[in-house]
């Protein structure tokens, strides 16, 4: 464990910050430290964690990788899946519909990037406009209600204080992603092509295909997040993914993934998501104006990255 921490300083920083934060809360307002607070934090982490996982994979794989459309995918997948159910799709297929739509939209991004060679920032900026705009325009902004009641016990339930969407979906996916990245050749390809694309191509890694898959996976993760939102809220909101592109980017970068790709891991990303949501929760519990969240998170991002950049240079 210590070796691992030494290997990734960001993880240590985040863990430190988190402990500091919790200690700070304990001092200021001890009443907050209850099991229900943990449940709340994890519940509100689930969607962000899923989306950030996809975002992390895209950025890790390099090639100026970034996915600005994640929030748009969450909105559009949840809206389209609910529309499909209203149009007669069997309700049991709702999760599959979310995942399928998410995957398809993500692969669309991947094709734009790998086939048409449009830079990811621009390609996903364009699809961000298309996806999030369509979600609102198709519905006229109205929420699509009627999520089958069978799903809400999962979306709102908890086991031993851990919300089911986090326990059964977000956490396992992070574990799988962590194992794949560190223990399979495919995962090592991903990091290798993010680190140095040219040599990755030279050693025969199918860079384009891997990248296409990565964008697909990001879409898939967003589709999963869409399903979580449906099962949790009980209706599809056309703007449910609003701001997720920026928040997930913040979490990924805060989690120690280099914006240039090839450096970082998913453990840091999960830690960053939990830190962000804990921070939000703590500020809310202390009844501090929500606008401080926005400012503090922004300042934190700059501070951590500047510190990281300066120490890396010194090394």
């Amino acid at each position: 464990m210590t070796a691992r921490l030494r290997q990734s300083p960001t993880l240590a920083i985040l863990a430190g910050l988190w402990v500091l934060l919790v200690a700070g809360i304990a001092l200021l307002s001890p009443g907050i430290l209850t099991a229900s607070t943990l449940t709340t934090i994890l519940q509100f982490s689930s969607i962000l964690a899923l989306v950030s996982l996809g975002q992390a994979l895209v950025i890790l794989a390099g090639g100026a990788g970034i996915d600005l459309s994640v929030g748009g995918i969450v909105s559009l997948a949840s809206v389209l899946a609910m529309m499909a159910v209203s149009a007669g799709l069997p309700a049991t297929l709702l999760p599959l519909a979310c995942l399928g739509i998410g995957l398809a939209l993500g692969l669309g991004n991947g094709l734009l990037v790998t086939r048409l060679r449009i830079l990811p920032l621009i390609a996903t900026l364009a699809t961000f406009y298309v996806f999030s705009g369509s979600a609102v325009a198709l519905t006229g902004g109205a929420a699509q209600s009627g999520v089958p009641a069978a799903f809400t016990p999962w979306g709102r339930g908890a086991l031993a204080g851990i919300p089911l969407p986090f326990l059964t979906l977000a956490l396992p996916l992070f574990l799988v992603a962590g194992v794949v990245i560190s223990a399979t050749s495919w995962g090592r390809w991903l990091v290798a092509m993010g680190d140095n694309e040219r040599s990755a191509r030279l050693v025969g890694i199918p860079v384009d295909r891997a990248r296409l898959i990565v964008y697909g996976l990001s879409g898939l993760a967003s589709g999963a997040a869409a399903f979580v939102s449906l099962a949790w809220l009980g209706s599809a909101r056309p703007n449910i993914g609003q701001n997720l592109e920026l928040t997930s980017l913040t979490a990924v970068l805060l989690g120690g993934v280099s914006i240039f790709g090839g450096r970082g891991g998913v453990a840091g990303v999960l830690a960053a998501v939990l830190l962000l949501v804990t921070l939000q929760t703590a500020l809310l519990r202390l009844n501090i104006n929500t606008v401080w969240q926005v400012g503090i998170v922004g300042a934190l991002l700059v501070a951590v990255l500047v510190a990281d950049a300066l120490t890396t240079r010194r090394r």
């Binding site: 200021l28 202390l286 501070a303 510190a307 300066l310 120490t311």
Partner: peptide
Amino acid sequence: MLRQLKLTLFAATLLATGALPA
């Protein structure tokens, strides 16, 4: 570096707690 971060967060916490009592 860690110290810098701690200071940042601590200052933020202080500012924040000054803003409103629980």
